[in-house]
Amino acid sequence: MGLKKYISDIFYGVKSLITGMKVTGHYFVRPKEIITQQYPENRESLKMFDRFRGEVVLIHDENNMHKCTGCSACELACPNGSIEIISDKVIDPETGKSTKVIDKFVYHLSMCTFCNLCILSCPTDAIKMAQNFEHSVFDRSELTKVLNKPGSKIMPGIR
């Protein structure tokens, strides 16, 4: 009995080891199934999904117009304080009323956790998440971005 168990132990042990080796051997002879993607080389063909959250951008149209009213809803919604809206009061020349206009839409990429709450909170859909994920820079001050382009204006009819 003891000897029988001894031999069957060896037999099943070896069998299980060979089963394992079959699995790895299976992949060894099939180099087509390799899953590695060589990243910088495949940059052209690498397309991120539409919803991928890479960074916050302020949408500008071709006339350099954006939709941000400077309401700072996104600033309030942000859990980490990565958005700062610096706004000015300007007198509208047509109506003569004082209105709020963004001076700087400051975005601290280094503090952002990409939670998407700012996008959800925006009443005018002025900001969105872009798919860029290559954020590494040599100086961290470059991670503090001003999202509104120089000379950009608010789109008419947004307010």
């Binding site: 992949y27 390799i34 590695t36």
Partner: peptide, 13 residues
């Protein structure tokens, strides 16, 4: 390389 091919990788390239 052998290890990489067992693991469905490319190894050093």
């Amino acid at each position: 390389k052998v290890c990489a091919f067992f693991q469905q990788r490319l190894g050093p390239m």
